[in-house]
Amino acid sequence: MGKVSIENVSQYFINREGYKTQALKDLNLEIKDKEFVCIIGPSGCGKTTLLRIIAGLENPSSGKVTLDGEKITKPDPKRGMVFQEYSLFPWRTVIRNITFGPEMQGMDKNKSEEIAEEYLKLVGLEQFKNSYPYELSGGMRQRVAIARALANDPEVLLMDEPFGSLDAQTRNVLQSELLDIWEKKQITIAFVTHSVDEAVFLADKIVMLTSRPGKITNIIDVNLPRPRNRTSPDTNQFRDRVLKILAEERVKE
């Protein structure tokens, strides 16, 4: 199970001069089990903060986040995360990056390598097993990062603009691959992005945030049938709708 409930979450940051900034204000959101949710909004709207709170890397100033009813206070392998920047451990080979999680769970070396190879196959990088991260392209590195997060068998996968720094073609390929993985592994995914195209192609549900303080303005169900076509009239129409809502929000500000 991987049901995430966000209840009245607010987050403040106090900087060195004692200035208080509100990053998130009274957020309420329910992410259902096995749901693919995209969180979209302008930069600086607190999308990443929200994801970090779900991951347990930050604790909210008020409110709480629960996973299947259990309060989240610290990082836990049940919630895997893929970061925006390259977060692979450069001193470990590809396979040893993926075995890191299982090893930390106390799994023995052979068993964790078995698991790692399975996920390496899933992201199509078997032949790069013994390469170091510096030998891989950006897209390959993010594939390894996804495999590494999955190797812990998480219930929820948190993704913070994971394809943001990739070129458009690689991004499209990785989006399709991610959907395949999502269907195969039956997990919940919370995916932060600033790209409407990406959200419309991936999500069951799009959550829109505004900036400073970050608030949810809209939650849109994406009722397009899967597998989706990037350029079908339905998709275009839907994208148009989302963009219009975003534009309206900007005017309100």
Binding site: L57, P75, P77, F89, M104, Q105, R148, A149, N152
Partner: peptide
């Protein structure tokens, strides 16, 4: 942070 999320 990546290590923490992975259970270290």
């Amino acid at each position: 942070e990546a290590a923490k999320v992975l259970g270290c």
